[in-house]
């Protein structure tokens, strides 16, 4: 049987090999995605993001347990950063996910960001496609510890939960321009610590100032702010409930369809950009290297050099 068929049949070894293949970005990876693509698109994809140390992995662990109690199969992709120097990575998210061991309804995969800066790896979306095609109904995507600009998850997931902790004080102000804007659900984790209620109040106040998010049907979505203690499983059922409500809202309001359209456009545009770049490199790689030298020596500016290279590379 081919790899794609084995994945669709739910073979766990094949799923693991398939994810490695899409990570390698080899030509065969595209064939695999092509074979799986028609079988994917059924899963609800939930992004979990937030600063390092807020408890994302622990929350994913608790959330996955909750989904398992309801019978849904859960795929998990957890992204950690690659070293910008060696390219290596320590992937430690499994440490907090030990409760999920031994459950055939769960598949956990760690991924290194491999130089991508948006909070995910370049192949994360394709890894999600592999899990989706394999029949996992809910897929949890944990981003690298995110600051302000790691908002790629908003494009990759249907529902994004942004995790915060009490005591970030004025830091909350700093974060709110980037991450909080993409939140469909907000979670104040470590809710037993001092200042948890205050953190909830600050977030709610911030949300009350934001313009309402209205879907095509006129339905509005206001991100709920939930308190949780992930290590104890407290507040997890309401979080799962809020995620389900957001999924229902996407369906009801037409917002989901609109998001899917935008996502499809972005994925296609990116694929076109990459294909063009590869073709250009194959055609004009040596001219490119020479042009880099000329730009470095200020014999030419980058814009003019680019125009020249593209003109020469045209068939």
């Amino acid at each position: 049987m081919e790899l794609a068929e084995l994945i669709i049949a739910g073979d766990r070894r094949a799923i693991a090999r398939g994810i490695s293949l899409v990570e390698s970005q080899a030509p065969a990876a595209r064939e695999l995605v092509a074979a799986l693509y028609p079988h994917a698109g059924r899963a609800h994809i939930v992004g979990i993001t937030g600063a390092p140390g807020v408890g994302k992995s622990t929350l994913v662990n608790a959330l996955a347990l909750d989904y398992r109690r309801r019978g849904a199969r859960v795929g998990i992709v957890a992204v950690d950063p690659s070293s910008p120097f060696s390219g290596g990575a320590i992937l430690g998210d499994r440490i907090r996910m030990r409760d999920l061991a031994g459950d055939p309804g769960v598949f956990v995969r760690s991924m290194a960001s491999r130089g991508n800066l948006g909070g995910l790896a370049r192949a994360t979306v394709d890894a999600v496609t592999v899990l989706d095609a394999a029949g996992f109904e809910t897929i949890l995507v944990e981003t690298v510890g995110a600051g302000q600009a790691e908002v790629e998850i908003a494009q990759a997931a249907h529902t994004v939960a942004v995790v915060q902790v009490p005591g970030m004080g004025d830091d909350i102000q700093a974060i709110k321009a980037g991450l909080l804007e993409i939140a469909d659900v907000l979670v104040v984790n470590k809710g037993d610590q001092d200042g948890a209620d205050q953190a909830v109040a600050v977030l709610e106040a911030m949300l009350s100032l934001a313009p309402p998010r209205v879907g095509p049907s006129g339905d509005a979505w206001t991100p709920p702010v939930l308190k949780a203690i992930a290590t104890q499983g407290a507040g997890i059922a309401p979080l799962a409930q809020a995620i389900a409500e957001h999924a229902a809202y996407l369906e009801r309001s037409g917002q989901g369809q609109q998001n899917d359209q935008a996502r499809a456009a972005r994925e296609l545009h990116q694929a076109v950009r990459e294909a063009l770049w590869e073709r250009f490199l194959a055609q004009a790689g040596s001219e490119l290297a020479a042009a880099v030298q000329r730009v470095r020596d200020r014999q030419i500016d980058p814009y003019t050099a680019a125009e020249q290279l593209l003109r020469d590379a045209e068939p």
Binding site: S82, G88, L91, A112
Partner: peptide, 13 residues
Amino acid sequence: ALRDAGMEVIYTG
């Protein structure tokens, strides 16, 4: 050490 040698290390705890 393996990370610094450019490998991806999954650490399970």
